[in-house]
Write a protein that binds this DNA or RNA. Structure first.
Lengths: 147, 147
DNA sequence: TACACTGATTATAACGATTACAATGTAATA
DNA sequence: TATTACATTGTAATCGTTATAATCAGTGTA
């Protein structure tokens, strides 16, 4: 299944006139297989072995390219650095305050929130963003153990 | 009304053993009266006249103190710098992609989202965060004019 | 095949927000 | 008053990200 995702992504890129380079291929592939919403640096370090000469700038450049193409979303939480998420279908994020782990979950559209907000503020609504913060079971277990 | 807010905030601080300095007073007062969800630099520049010797570090330090006391929330959006929001009652934010303006709006609790998320992921939920992005009427008017 | 053109990558410098640190100042307490 | 603890200041350091210039392909064309 992930092979299909990669192929679709590459096709989408090609169709907008973006060249497929080995680096781009590798970054996309890594993001698709990753379940951890990696930072730019995560990606850089993960691909270091296969691309010893790759520059961090390349990672950032290409993440921007992917973002513009709608393949990738940038997530800015409280931490210092952005995390990047390969876009498959709409989902929300559950974030652990203890270890930073991010778990996806689905929820039927919150369209009515958008409508209300648009009505109240007069804005033209584009999209919304929802995150839930809490503590994952691992961290819960750790704190229980520590006491 | 805002006088009451300020007094409550100062009392809350005092009760946790935090000293009330002129700088802290001024920062809190500015945040309460501000409707713009200012950045640290906004606050710094606004208070420059009354506190010519105040350091940016003081602003950051105290924002952290206020955050720990639950008086202030830090908002991290896509932009480079964080914005800070004096906590009054729960509300959500509508953000203009054009000019960065942030407008508050209210919406009845999304408790059921938290419940579902907790059930699906096994997390212990603390809170959630929801933002809606779009274009404000000013920016809509500007783009209409430009064409 | 050779040549130019366009875009991609690399390496590194620059930038900007935030934090750390050391020195000084100020308030509270004994 | 002397001591102590906390706040502020000024500045340097850090870190994520972006900009820049040089080099390096890949593609198309003569």
């Amino acid at each position: 299944m992930s092979e299909g995702l990669l192929k679709d992504a590459l096709d989408a890129l090609k169709s907008t006139g973006v060249r497929i380079t080995p680096q781009r291929n590798a970054i996309l592939e890594y993001m698709i297989h990753s379940t951890t919403h990696p930072t730019a640096d995560d990606i850089y370090r993960a691909l270091e072995k296969s691309f010893p000469n790759m520059s961090v700038a390349t990672v950032y450049n290409n993440l921007r390219v992917f973002k513009k193409a709608g393949l990738v979303k940038e997530l800015t939480y409280g931490d210092s650095s952005s995390r990047f998420d390969f876009v498959t279908h709409d989902h929300y994020h559950m974030i652990c305050s203890g270890c930073g782990k991010i778990v996806d979950f689905h929820y039927p559209g919150l369209d009515e929130v958008e409508h209300l907000a648009s009505h109240v503020t007069g804005f033209q609504v584009d999209y919304h963003r929802l995150e839930i913060y809490g503590t994952c079971q691992d961290c819960l277990a750790d704190t229980a153990k520590a006491q």
